[in-house]
């Protein structure tokens, strides 16, 4: 085990030495990888912020529950209890039929018209906000509530939610497609870098094999080099995005102030950064693994 660790430490030291001795080339390569990665990560960031902006402007979709016109106080209380204990309901409020009637008469200037009606035609109602914004969940909640006793009609305006979500969905798919394509580009870039390194160290590889180096021994430094290129590129992408976000926030702050909003772009969160760095490291490793394996199989 100790032996194994020291072999890895030695390989890592060798690679870091080499990267240090070719600082400029390494830095350029990391920038290329960083720029490549910052495209999908940046688009993700934009979508994430767009989603937050949309969520901030419009409150959650609202479900209106209209009770039967002759619903008793007991029915109202029972429904109130059901809503309070329901785990998908975020909050709700009761609108009594008398209060609604009074409000309608006053608000719409319908006094005359209303005066012509003998009875209050409005039912009691609950206005419910769901915990989730997803159309499927809300639709499910609507159908469930519609089954409850004393409910006449459940109304839900999901059109805009659906529209927003399908737009964001398209955006997310675009992120995936872009990430897939640029991930492939990253694989090719790292693979090619490692291939060139292999060519410059061909003699060393040949001698090492002749005096008994295993394929794993030969592969090891290149795998470290590939992983480090990937990780360095991921960090470069992260820094690029952080810089861009900070820069944009200066002007966004001005615009937002005009709209009396405190909206600001948020940076990638910890989990996303971890995925970005982990993914880029993995792609770097894979790119160099493919390059070395191809070389090793070509010389046997």
């Amino acid at each position: 085990m100790k032996h194994w660790i020291s072999l890895h430490r030695e390989a890592l030291r060798l690679v870091l030495d080499r990267m240090w001795s070719t600082k400029l080339a390494t830095l350029m390569m990391l920038s290329v990888i960083g720029l490549t990665l910052s495209l999908p990560a940046g688009l993700y960031l934009v979508l994430d912020n767009a989603g937050r902006l949309a969520g901030g402007i419009e409150s959650d979709p609202q479900i209106s529950l209209f009770l039967n016109i002759d619903a008793s106080n007991e029915t109202v209380k029972a429904l109130d209890k059901q809503l309070r204990s329901h785990k998908m309901v975020k909050d709700y409020r009761f609108v009594g039929r008398d209060a609604a009637w009074a409000e309608l008469k006053q608000k719409a200037g319908l006094d005359d018209l209303a005066g012509g009606l003998e009875k209050n035609p409005l039912p009691d109602a609950f206005i419910v906000h769901a915990r989730s914004n997803e159309p499927e969940t809300i639709e499910q909640l609507r159908q469930e509530i519609a089954q409850w006793d004393g409910i006449d009609h459940v109304q839900l305006d999901t059109a805009w939610v659906k529209r927003l979500y399908s737009l964001l969905q398209v955006g997310r798919q675009a992120v995936l497609v872009l990430a897939g394509m640029l991930g492939f580009a990253l694989l090719a870039v790292v693979g090619n870098t490692i291939r060139l390194q292999i060519l410059t160290q061909r003699e060393e590889i040949e001698v090492s094999q002749l005096i008994g180096a295993t394929n794993a021994f030969i592969r090891r430094p290149f795998l470290y080099a590939g992983s480090l290129h990937g990780l360095g590129g991921g960090i470069a992408a992260w820094l690029l995005l952080a810089a861009a976000t900070t820069l944009f926030n200066f002007s966004i702050e001005d615009v937002a102030r005009l709209y009396a909003s405190d909206f600001r772009l948020t940076m990638l969160d910890g989990g996303t950064i971890l995925i970005l760095l982990g993914g880029s490291t993995l792609l770097g490793w894979l790119g160099s693994y493919l390059a070395v394996s191809r070389y090793l199989s070509s010389i046997h």
Binding site: S6, L7, E10, V207, S208, I211, G212, A213
Partner: peptide, 11 residues
């Protein structure tokens, strides 16, 4: 030192 590294002898 190369053959020693290949044999896992370091330091």
């Amino acid at each position: 030192v190369l053959p020693l590294h290949i044999n896992g002898i370091l330091g």
